[in-house]
Amino acid sequence: MNLIVRGAVWFVVYLFLILFPLVVAAVADPLDVPRPFLVEVGVALGAVGLAITAFQFALVSRTRAAAAAFGEDALLQFHRQIGLVALACVWLHPLLLVVADFAPLGWMIAPVGDIPWAAQSGTLSAYALTGLIALSVWRRRLRLAYEWWQATHALLAITAVALGAIHMLEMGGYAGAPGVRMVWAAYLVLLGGLAVNYRLVRPLRMLRRPWEVARNVEERGGARTLVLRPVGHPGMAFQPGQFAWLITGGTPFALEQHPLSFSSSAETPPGGEVAFTIKAVGDWSGTRVPALQPGRRVWVDGPYGVFSVDREEGPGYVLIAGGSGIAPLRSMLLTLAAREDVRPVLLFYGNRRWEAMTYREELDALARRMNLTVVYAVEEPHPGWTGEVGYIDAAMLRRHLPKQFRRFRYFVCGPGAMMDAMEGILTGLGVPRTQVFTERFDMV
């Protein structure tokens, strides 16, 4: 099926799942005493907020059929942003009831003291959701390690949904109607199934396809290339630019997993090695990854993502990397070189210092093997540096882009702020938006 049609179908399914409880409630309409309009809007918002929160897990449970239509990173972004919509619904819900004089303000503020459990559970659920979102949005500012964030995220999510469901059932109202209860029971089964698939079936599948560390090489700029070899299976076919989740915790059932772009060539024979590039930024990448010895067993869940030259054919490519964003672009370059692709490729590579340019020797070697031009840009140039200085901007791009640059495809990977800037700059230069692709991993 066409990817657009498939995406549209999944989108309609999602909307249906969120709104169906409301439809059933409206049809059942079990309330004897009519309530004010504002109260009903508030109640509906609560139901919608709970439904979105419950299905947040479905969005990130790596269901291949859905991920294929949108790309895992687009799904992650939707998950993140729709979570904010859920938060708004969840807080507007009691707020409207308070405004309509239907519930006391105290219930909404402090879920303690002489308050019915039905209300307490709702407020606690809202606080759990608020905490979860605050930790996600401000994880770095709060200096919360990624692995700890993963654990709290799952725990708070389960708490928020469970308390929300208890609140709804305890409150009665529409949830008193057998139809509404049946819908939620079906949702519970559906989400339970997804959870079993995610926590049990998926790791079991991975268990049969173990990998081992072949080499763990220190690179420039505080990065490491982790080369993995499949053990007893043909390995993984991926498209250059895609990513996978790496599990190094000793078992595929480990909670901790890290999304990483493949940085090796996609043109490897069955049984071939794959590589990831990992920059030291936290406890895992800074301490535990360097300690991974050859022979160490690890697991790879992938490939995922739609950020790939293989999906976007064009007469030439412009790759723009910021810092460790070079990883997926290296994979693209190695793949194109392995295929002896003759199309022109321009790589703009920005980094703080020349010494921190990961893979620069390799990139220079590639430029001699294929139709590749590399433009390095350093923020802190050393004495005698004659290349580009500062952030990659419109003027710098214009100095190096060939005449037909508007027909090329653009792949940008780096810090979020850089990608935002680059999208604006490229469209400003007249590159059609549909030809610019970004990969965003620093969402949390």
């Binding site: 309009f37 809007v41 919509v85």
Partner: peptide
């Protein structure tokens, strides 16, 4: 550019859900 599209879709969904809640309330309020 897909992240711009995703943001638009989220706004669209938010508006749609808001409308659905309003319609629901209109439907069940006499």
């Amino acid at each position: 550019m897909h992240h711009v599209i995703v943001t638009r879709v989220v706004w669209f969904v938010a508006a749609l859900l808001g409308l659905a809640c309003t319609l629901f309330a209109m439907g069940v309020t006499p």
